[in-house]
Design a protein around this nucleic acid. Sequence first.
DNA 1: AGCGCCGATTCCGTTGCGGTAACCGGGGGT
DNA 2: ACCCCCGGTTACCGCAACGGAATCGGCGCT
Lengths: 130, 130
Amino acid sequence: MTDATAHDRAAPLDPGMFHPLCPSSAVPFRVGDKWSGMVIRCLQDGPRRFGELRVPLRAVTPKVLSETLRAMERDGLVTRTAYDENPPRVEYALTPLGRTLIPLLDAARTWSETHLPALLAARRAAGRPA
Amino acid sequence: MTDATAHDRAAPLDPGMFHPLCPSSAVPFRVGDKWSGMVIRCLQDGPRRFGELRVPLRAVTPKVLSETLRAMERDGLVTRTAYDENPPRVEYALTPLGRTLIPLLDAARTWSETHLPALLAARRAAGRPA
DNA sequence: AGCGCCGATTCCGTTGCGGTAACCGGGGGT
DNA sequence: ACCCCCGGTTACCGCAACGGAATCGGCGCT
């Protein structure tokens, strides 16, 4: 069964990595579309298939994921490779240009770990001056 | 006339700094709302008045600027100080928390200077495969 | 024949950001 | 009396993003 082919598939994606309650949902940064940043995270350890991306991004519908990937492909951030097999297999991978965004995402994450609690606290304090 | 009071007002804002044709309009990053990043840039050298912010951000209407500033105030990124004078004067300034975002903006700008041309080129190449 | 897999695409509806235009209020100038 | 200044607010609107549900197409399995 283990069709471990030549694809240097990285570890399976953690289904919980982009849980809707994850603070990253509230982060005041965005790279491109709403999901682009998460897609980059999913691809940073190697190519992934469409259905594979849907696991951790289960909040995204196939339509939106498809749109996101197409836009990223247009911008030269990812490559799309379709294998003429059955069932069809399509792999997405980061381009070198796409990889240059990873440090930005790291910086955003670091900022969030450090300062997001303060921001959320301020928002809560201001939200209910009652 | 020079009512140079104790306000350590920085150099006047460059009216052209956020020209609509500026590449920053196409940058695939955003900090908070559409205008938040630019507001931070305007405030990084010292407090500014509402009307003063409108100069370089002449593309933004008072409503949206007001909304942006209010949201940033809620999030603890800027402070709002109203002086009971005539004509009314209101000053906005970055909080320490707001200042922590400046390195992020710097990183985004650096990325853009380095890689944005490649992204735009890819987009152009893909946009017209005719 | 019928079902399922994978990778989408199409139609349709909602939401909300962002934009336009108009107005307000109070003092001061002329 | 009128208008201007400043710093907004309010009402209205359009568009693009986002989302849900359904469908497609080729193939293999049963």
